[in-house]
Design a binder for these strands. Structure first.
Lengths: 222, 222
DNA sequence: TTCTGTACTGTTATTTGGTACAGTACACCT
DNA sequence: AGGTGTACTGTACCAAATAACAGTACAGAA
C-alpha cells in the first residue's frame, strides 16, 4: 500500500497528529521545526512528493492548505475512536499504524482509566473475571501495574514466536512475576517469570512487557 | 443549550462545514466573504464571541487557528452516539428525551443486532450470563423476542410503581411468559406472567412490555 | 440613563506562511 | 556515465492572515 518513503510516512503521520491535536494542519515551518530542518523548503519538498503520490492535496495560496485524501480523511476524527490492535509487528510500538486492524467508534474516555487501544480476547483464560472469548477489552497504556491488576502483556507466541497480546492477572514479588489466568480449569496454568537473571532494570532481554492495564470491555453480541 | 446568537450559530456552522469540505478551518477573510462582510473585523468579533462562550478556541498567531472544542466536535455526528436510558417516565416512549440520562459516544453498529439505546444494569440477576452490576447493556429495540433471548423488559417497580427496565431471559409458552434471572441464588426467582386474563392482543393493560433484546454490553471499569 | 453585548465598516501594522530559485549530497536505475 | 528521485540548506519575495485601533448603530438589561 505505502509507496511513501520512511520520511514521507513520518511527515504524513505528523500532519495527522497535528490535525487530531490542534484541529488544523501544520504549516511548512511547523513541519520543519518538528523534524529539525533549518529550512521550510525541506518540508515543502516532502509535501509535494506526498501530494504527487496521492495521499494529500495541497491547496495553493492557502495557509495550512493541506487536505488528507479519501481514506486518509476518514481517519481525521480519531478523537472518539479507538484502534483495535491485533498482532504486533516486531520492534514496533504497540499502537503503530501497522498493528491497527481497524478503528472502532468508541469514546476512549468512557473507560476508567481512559482506554488507549482495544484488543479482541481469544480464548477462555479470563472467564472467571467475566471476560469471555470474543470480548473486546479496553486497555490503558502503561508499562507497569499494581499487584492483582489485569494487564495486557506482550510476549512471543510459544510456537510462532510472533509477539501477541494476552490478558493475565499480574503479581510481582521482588524479581518474580506471576501472570495468572482467571480460569480454574487445569489447562490454564499461571506463568512464572524470573527477572533475576537479567541485568538490573534492562527489560530488553526479557521477551515480556506490559502494554497496559485492563480498563473495561465491549461485548458486541447479544 | 445554545447560548449563541443566530449569527454566531451560522458562523459556527460555516466553520464546521469548511472543516468537512476543505479539511482546514476558514480564515477571517473566508468568513467575511461568505457572509458578505466588507471587513475581516466583523468575522474576528464573532469568532471572539464564540470563543468566549466556549464553543471554539482561537490559537493566537496561527493562520486558521480555530479549534472546535470537544463538545462541539462531538455534535458533528449525532450518528455515532447512543442514549443511556435510566428510569421511564409514565406514558413516554422509551427513547423519549426525558428518559435519556446522557449520550455516550459508542457506535450503534458495533453491536449485533444494532443497538438503539443503552441501559445501566443494577444488581446481580444476570450474573451467570456474565452481565454484572454496573455494566451498560446495548439494547436493540423491538417489541417481541424469541424464546431464550435476553430481553429488556419494562414494568413497574414492585414498591415505587415507577416503570423501570430489567434484563431477563424470555420464554413464552402459549399465554404464559416466564422472565428468568440468570442467577441460581435462591433470592432470584423467575417471574411468571399470564396473558390469559387480558383482552386478546391489547398489551396496554398488562404492566409488562418488551423494550428490546440484549445486543451486547460495555463494562467501563477495569 | 448608562452600560454591555451584538453586529458590523474601514484602516493599518506586523507576522505568518507559501513558493520560487539556487545549491549540495547521496542512492538507485539503466 | 548520466538521469531521476530523495533529502535536505539557504535566501528571498510577496501574498495571506492575524490582530489592533477607531468608529457607527441598535437592542436589552440594570
Amino acid at each position: 500500500m505505502s509507496d511513501l518513503t520512511q520520511r514521507q510516512t513520518e511527515i504524513l503521520d505528523f500532519i495527522r497528529s497535528q490535525l487530531r491535536e490542534t484541529g488544523f494542519p501544520p504549516t511548512r515551518e511547523d513541519i520543519a521545526r518538528q523534524f529539525g530542518f533549518s529550512s521550510k523548503t525541506g518540508a515543502q519538498d516532502h509535501l509535494m512528493a506526498i501530494a504527487r503520490k496521492g495521499y494529500i492535496e495541497l491547496v495553493p495560496g492557502n495557509a495550512r492548505g493541506i487536505r488528507l485524501l479519501k481514506e486518509e480523511a476518514a481517519e481525521l476524527s480519531h478523537q472518539f475512536e479507538l484502534p483495535l490492535i491485533g498482532s504486533i509487528a516486531a520492534g514496533t510500538p504497540i499502537t503503530a499504524e501497522t498493528n491497527v486492524d481497524t478503528w472502532l467508534r468508541v469514546d476512549p474516555e468512557l473507560f476508567h482509566p481512559r482506554a488507549d487501544f482495544l484488543h479482541r480476547v481469544s480464548g477462555h483464560s479470563m472467564k472467571e473475571a467475566n471476560i469471555l472469548d470474543g470480548d473486546i477489552v479496553g486497555i490503558h497504556a502503561q508499562d507497569d501495574a499494581d499487584n492483582g491488576q489485569i494487564v495486557a502483556a506482550v510476549m512471543p507466541h510459544p510456537r510462532t514466536g510472533e509477539d501477541e497480546i494476552t490478558l493475565k492477572r499480574y503479581f510481582r514479588r521482588g524479581k518474580k512475576i506471576t501472570l495468572k489466568p482467571e480460569n480454574s480449569a487445569p489447562a490454564y496454568k499461571p506463568l512464572e517469570i524470573d527477572l533475576a537473571p537479567l541485568d538490573g532494570d534492562s527489560q530488553e532481554q526479557t521477551p515480556f512487557r506490559i502494554a497496559g492495564v485492563y480498563a473495561g470491555l465491549i461485548r458486541v453480541r447479544g
